[in-house]
Nucleic acid binder design. Structure first.
Lengths: 233, 233
DNA sequence: GCTGCATGACTACCATACAAGTTTGCTGTT
DNA sequence: AACAGCAAACTTGTATGGTAGTCATGCAGC
């Protein structure tokens, strides 16, 4: 029985479908590195832990595997996947390309009401800049979604859910080192460019901001090499 | 028993894991509209059809649902999802943003060997331009992947698999109307811009090319309204 | 003829059992 | 002590049965 699984379980509501609850619970625990990369998860152990049968666990595992969060090895076990640096960089490339275009479009079609919403979010971000990283991450997420919606690309944003999961694992590892005040300042610059309807500036500020995220990755990879897939030299 | 399921089944190899085979087979049949949108698929019927038990069917359904290809309605049945025009447009936006950036990077780092590979693909495309749409689609796919690999973004390309599935359903519907010679010409212009290391032109030609795909969608949506999710008026 | 209720058929979801492959532990031999 | 072989335990994948919810049909009452 894997030790990290002995933590008190999140309650599973048996009156609702079980497998989606298991998926959400396990996904969140993996993203937060509570279930560390490399951890072995067996269907039997997880089913015992959550007091359910193997079948819904298996279904949750299939989804987790599709999301790139676990590796299912037939006859051997399932393992929390290690973070693939190449995938993180690829996800970053995709995200930057898409959000840069979103920022351009947003600069072209933003309204005053939308700007007011963005400003309100910035105020909340500044309130968090004293070190409340979890709250900041939620506001950051809402901030980027707002811009996508302004650009009419809420659905496109949803397409990026899959890659966002990969990046969130890194974000949670680096959260304690977030330079919150710098990030808030960068968000402010993006909003200012959108306010000025300057598509070029909006794109450039967004790219600059998203590249900032890459800065902390080498440090955390060096601190926790076991969390990452070994790079071929 | 749904009528379209009576078509002779693709062979399932029982010495290998069954559910991945079912997933691939059903996914392909949905993408090709052989299983039309709205078609009801029950676990029991599909299991009988492919001479397997319900469990691997269920597992394939879970994956198909994650891929947006079927809607699972508890107690009611599972249905091939209708094509969501908003999702297609969103997928197109994301794809364009990413491939535009890929084209820029490719123009910056292409080598002569890479260009020779692209030229060879173009020759094959011209051979297909007389109307062999399926062969053209495969070459088109390889063409775009090549550019992504040139740009060092093969992994980023893989991230787009999910949205590519949605778009492929439309592509298969419109394949007979592909203006193949125009598409080959656009591909040629992209390669020429990359050859000239002109990142701006490469980006612009790529965007122009990818927007071309949108042109045929209204026609096919009008011809087969049942295939699409009804738009709110 | 229409409405409401009961019943039966069907569905996905979950529980349990079986099968095939892998790993671990124990025993015997050198 | 080290190695090889075998049996048991473990794993995921599949098969089958039970459960709760949904829908369609038939019947009775108005």
């Amino acid at each position: 029985m894997n030790q990290s699984l002995t933590t008190k379980p999140t309650a599973i509501d048996p009156t609702r479908a079980v497998s989606p609850q298991l998926f959400t619970c396990l996904r969140d625990r993996i993203v937060r590195s509570e279930l560390e990369p490399g951890t072995r998860l067996s269907e039997v152990d997880v089913a015992t832990f959550y007091n359910t049968s193997r079948q819904p666990v298996r279904e949750a595992f299939i989804k987790l595997s599709e999301a790139g969060l676990i590796d299912i090895r037939p006859q051997r076990g399932s393992f929390v996947s290690r973070i693939d640096m190449d995938s993180v960089l690829a996800a970053q490339f995709v995200r930057e390309a898409v959000e840069a275009d979103i920022a351009r479009v947003a600069a072209d079609c933003v309204t005053d009401d939308m700007l007011a919403d963005l400003d309100a979010n910035l105020i909340l971000q500044r309130d968090c800049a004293d070190g409340d990283a979890p709250a900041f991450m939620a506001l950051d997420e809402a901030f980027h979604l707002m811009i996508a919606v302004i650009a009419g690309q809420g659905a496109g944003w949803a397409f990026l859910d899959g890659l966002r999961t990969q990046m969130d694992r890194v974000r949670h590892l680096t959260a304690s080192q977030f330079p919150l005040e710098i990030l808030v300042e960068q968000h402010t610059q993006i909003v200012d460019a959108i306010r000025a309807r300057d598509a070029d500036a909006a794109e450039q500020k967004m790219r600059q901001h998203l590249r900032r995220v890459l800065n902390d990755i080498p440090t955390v990879a060096a601190a926790k090499p076991d969390f990452f897939i070994a790079k071929d030299t």
